[in-house]
Design a binder for these strands. Structure first.
Length: 194
DNA sequence: AAAATGATGCTCT
DNA sequence: GAGCATCATTTTC
């Protein structure tokens, strides 16, 4: 897959976008990692989505162009990295939940002393800590070549499994199976399938 | 092995 | 003032 194809998928359907991002590579300087777990969040029809209640200062980048970084702070502790989807004005985003480190392992290990490699990026908060992603990266175009933070599309589609999204209360969209994981990398994922 | 808890702060009502 | 798209540590079976 090339960048323009990934861009088109994200623009048309956030669910397909979440699947297409499996196997893609996150690049930030010398750091590289392959995405193996994602979740799709839609708009007015998805009570679990930040965009459900309309545009706010926090979620405004979800309403902008697809393929941008939507980064927000959660639980007073963690930054979360999302990739925006759907056309301008129609908000949706894919939460990046876990990745397999490919390059820059030394830096990631230093940032997370004592963790085995499999758990360096096995969770949305851990991933942003390993990559040092925070407020500064919010709104960046992830599909432009050579940007400070970018995503390289996967070369071939990965076989995946799906399940309910993590941390969603009953009645708020817990029943939709919009969490996707690479079947070959379940050991690198944030938590086992339910 | 699983469940409970505390850390810690921003966003929206 | 309540509620979070979490994580690591501690406590309990």
């Amino acid at each position: 897959m090339i960048r323009s194809e990934l861009s088109a998928v994200l623009r048309s359907d956030v669910i397909e976008g979440a699947k297409a991002l499996l196997g893609a590579t996150i690049v930030k300087g010398e750091l590289r990692a392959m995405i193996v777990e994602t979740e799709a969040y839609r708009s007015s029809d998805d009570a679990a989505s930040h965009a459900f209640r309309g545009r706010t200062p926090r979620n405004q980048v979800m309403f902008g162009e697809p393929g941008r970084a939507y980064v927000y702070f959660n639980y007073g502790v963690h930054w979360m990295l999302n990739v925006t989807a759907h056309d301008e004005g129609e908000a949706a985003a894919v939460l990046i939940r876990a990745a397999v480190p490919l390059a820059g392992l030394e830096t990631m290990r230093e940032r997370r002393r004592g963790l085995p490699d499999r758990q360096l990026l096995s969770g949305p908060g851990k991933l942003t800590r390993g990559f040092d992603i925070s407020q500064a990266e919010n709104g960046l175009d992830l599909l432009s070549d050579g940007g400070p933070l970018s995503i390289e599309p996967s070369t071939a589609p990965l076989t995946f499994v799906s399940g309910p999204r993590v941390g969603i209360a009953v009645g708020k969209g817990h029943e939709t199976p919009w969490r996707f994981m690479s079947e070959a990398h379940l050991e690198w994922v944030s938590r086992p399938i339910a």
